[in-house]
Computed example of a mutant assay.
Amino acid sequence: MRDPGRRAVLAAAGAAALAACTPAPPSPSRATTAPEGTTAPPGPAPSSAPSASGGTGGMRRTAGTGTPRVVATVAEGLDTPWSIAFLPGGPVLVTERGTGRILALSPSGAVREAGRITVRAGAGEGGLLGLEPAPSFARDGTVFAYATAEQSNRVMALRWDGSALGGERVLVDGIPAAAVHNGGRLKVGPDGMLYIGAGDAGQRQLAQDRASLAGKILRVAPDGSPAPGNPFGNRTFTYGHRNVQGLAWDSRGRMWASEFGPDRDDELNLITAGSQYGWPGVTGAAVQGGSVPAAHVWPSTADASPSALAILDDVAYVACLRGQRLWRVPLPGAGFAPDGGGSLPGATEHFRGEYGRLRDVVVVPAEFRGTGAPGAWPDADLWLATNEGDGSRILAVAL
């Protein structure tokens, strides 16, 4: 079924149609993979510069109601997209997990291949995953990518030449890979370092091994080396994680992460350097051996299975796979510390079952906010990637 919010329709209808557009109900879900998530000292002082595709914390972008609503379909007919990356100056790139393709999107709705990375065949939840522009992108065109190779997951640097990505160079190798729990999210933090969500690859004991790259949030310099000031002198920033797939920062520079639970207790965690987050000993808001309890817990994975996280105006937006919805979670103020309660007030769900499994959610940078004129990007605050096999779409969401 064609979505009435399609870019071509919007271009013809102009600004009035964009404001009034209500997308049609989606076709029945066609997910082709098993749902995932079913079975210390403070960090460095942040700067004020946001990640190119991460959250902008408290920056006000819209005078809307705060209630998410889909206003356009940016692109459709994709094959299981995993990560959306806005390149400063354009275009917008999207990774496809199984094909290894990196796609470039245009405001007209056109999609073209801008690069391809060879990924391990039959990688399950692995494949081509995270994508993120480097802090040096404006100078040298560097883009980071996370992919499953034959023996492991790895982080690579690619070079954007103005029309395509190439020049693949490995920065971090040896992140354990498996059919499940590959992590894969990449975000550049306010400190200019690269943060990597690495799953436990089904080897749960590795999550507590601070020397292992599995079950961690890793923090590396742009060349892939351990970032200065890391708590253990290696790439490990925090440990005791099962499968982190969402990373973002709020206006106070606090880092947050969304994480799959096993058959219960999906988590939204407040991240502090050197801390351990309980897996595999405990999940959710439980505490064991000095672990940090989750700030917010979804006891049933049917309600969440969170794959991605974006923060805007100090509100977390969590894209969910099995839960097939977008959670809106207002974040607490200064001085908050998780106390084991596992519930943040004001959390609301949106789009439940309307668009299928939601894989990625990103804040739209100002330069990609459209005016409603023909040929412009949609005027939206967030973009969502749906995870419905070859029926996947990128949706524009206004607040």
Rank of each mutant, 00 (worst) to 15 (best):
L103T: 03
Y277Q: 07
D161I: 06
G290H: 12
I394F: 02
I196E: 05
A114M: 05
T33Q: 03
L399D: 09
G333F: 14
I394K: 02
L129R: 12
L309Y: 02
G391W: 05
R264F: 15
P330C: 11
L18Q: 14
G43H: 15
G229Y: 09
E113A: 02
A319I: 04
L382F: 12
H181C: 02
G115T: 09
S307C: 06
V361T: 05
V180I: 13
L384V: 10
P91R: 05
S392K: 08
T236S: 13
L384P: 15
R357C: 02
A45F: 02
W249N: 02
P374A: 15
A248N: 10
D379L: 08
L321D: 08
T33R: 01
V94R: 11
P306G: 06
G233P: 14
P332R: 14
R7A: 14
D390H: 02
M193P: 01
I271F: 08
R159H: 08
R204H: 15
G5V: 04
G189R: 02
T371P: 04
G199C: 11
P50H: 13
Y355G: 12
D79S: 12
G341W: 06
S305D: 00
R352S: 11
P365D: 01
V362W: 00
V71N: 06
G166T: 08
I117W: 01
A138H: 08
R154C: 05
G341S: 03
R7N: 10
D263L: 04
G197P: 09
R254D: 14
G342P: 15
L268S: 07
A308F: 03
R6I: 05
G141S: 00
L105W: 12
T39Y: 13
L268Q: 06
G64Q: 06
R264E: 10
L321R: 00
S305W: 10
A294L: 08
R204N: 13
A31D: 11
V180N: 12
V363G: 01
R369H: 11
T99S: 14
A248K: 03
A257Y: 03
P25H: 11
W82D: 04
P345Y: 08
D266L: 10
A34M: 04
T62R: 00
A31I: 01
E367N: 10
G174S: 07
Y146V: 02
P81E: 06
R2A: 13
V9D: 09
M59R: 06
D191Q: 14
T348H: 06
A286S: 14
